[in-house]
């Protein structure tokens, strides 16, 4: 039986996978599009459709994030508008590269390899963070001031390469720096179908040199419009599967609410190591899939999907389990307090 042109099993997979991705990224504060594109690649969607649908999913989650956080962080609108333009140029170049690679028949391979590196890199960073957690707890005094511009940003701003623009925070940045940073992030977004918030925000903070609060708000602002542009660009060539994006969003919007609420009940430190492992397993899953394609066998396909989707389900389930455990513990505490003997 089919509904919206998809089998019921696929329909359930997309809604539940969207839900799990929503839980994960609502909890860890990321968009999650970098799990969507590789999953669609593993399910044999053409690279351009996987990337276009990943960007459209990112756009939908950005709208929800902006609605939720519209009052969080300052926005440097001038910088945001310039970033939107350069991000869009980067996305356009990235998308043309994808269509060029598709014409050469190597788009899936290039995108797959890019995801192997990207997910393994993010996984390694999270594992390192988990490993260093105890040291950070001991230090306790290295918190950056949200209103300060980082030293790297100040150093880059000290090189005056015209044209320079004034930032709301008081500093000045070269249009070349903004163009280089924003264009590179846009290129990555357009090429592999990620929102790029995890590189866009640090690029604004460290390279352009804005205070952290302004970097978060401006990144969200520029990301929303560039996500819309990416959806539009891939939509022009019919490379966005609206059914898949809609099903993922239905699950993700609910999951993100639960994931976001879970941050008040579950310590991030307790699950961060599993998140890092999940990313490494997802990377291994895509690597296996590429290997299977190279060997011309479909035998490893199931293992690849299991590693990518299964590991996400496992970590999201773990967060939900800890939420239930935390609610159970607080209920038993409430009941125990009146006659607790103290």
């Amino acid at each position: 039986m089919e509904l919206f042109g998809l089998s019921l099993a696929l329909l359930a997979l997309f809604v539940s996978f969207g839900f799990m991705v929503g839980v994960l990224f609502g909890f860890f504060g990321m968009g999650g599009s970098f799990l969507i594109t590789p999953t669609l690649l593993l399910l044999d969607y053409p690279a351009s459709v996987a990337i276009g649908s990943g960007l459209a999913f990112y756009f939908g989650t950005s709208v929800i994030a902006v609605l939720k956080h519209y009052d969080v962080g300052q926005v440097d609108y001038k910088l945001g508008a310039i970033l939107f333009v350069v991000l869009s140029i980067g996305i356009e170049i990235g998308s043309r590269l994808v269509f060029g690679l598709e014409a050469l028949g190597i788009a899936n391979l290039v995108t797959g390899v890019a995801y192997v590196v990207l997910l393994a890199g993010i996984g390694a960073l999270f594992l390192r963070r988990a490993y260093n957690l105890e040291d950070d707890d001991d230090d306790g005094d290295d918190d950056a001031n949200d209103d300060e511009i980082p030293a790297v940003g100040q150093k880059i701003q000290s090189y005056s390469v015209p044209p320079m623009i004034n930032l709301t925070s008081g500093g000045r940045a070269s249009l070349w720096t903004i163009g280089g940073a924003g264009g590179s992030v846009g290129l990555v977004s357009g090429l592999i179908g990620v929102g790029g918030g995890f590189i866009r925000m640090p690029a604004i903070y460290y390279l352009i040199g804005t205070p952290l609060t302004a970097a978060v708000g401006t990144s969200l602002f520029a990301g929303l419009f560039s996500g819309a542009f990416g959806t539009f660009t891939y939509g022009m060539s019919g490379s966005v599967d609206l059914t898949v994006v809609s099903l993922l969003l239905v699950g993700s919007a609910l999951g993100a609410r639960i994931g976001s609420a879970a941050t008040t009940m579950v310590e991030e430190d307790d699950v961060i190591v599993y998140f890092g492992l999940m990313m490494v397993l997802a990377s291994a899953g895509i690597a296996l899939s590429e290997l299977a394609n190279w060997l011309g066998t479909g035998a490893l396909d199931l293992v690849s999907v299991f590693l990518l989707v299964g590991s996400s389900f496992f970590v999201a389930s773990m967060i939900l389990y800890k939420v239930v455990q935390s609610i159970g513990a607080s209920e038993s505490n409430t009941r125990g307090t009146p006659d607790g003997g103290d």
Partner: peptide, 20 residues
């Protein structure tokens, strides 16, 4: 294609707002 892509962006925008 231009109109189709614009409608697509609008549909996703409306859907995201409705879900929120």
């Amino acid at each position: 294609p231009l109109v189709q892509a614009t409608i697509l962006v609008g549909v996703i925008l409306v859907q995201a707002v409705a879900l929120y």
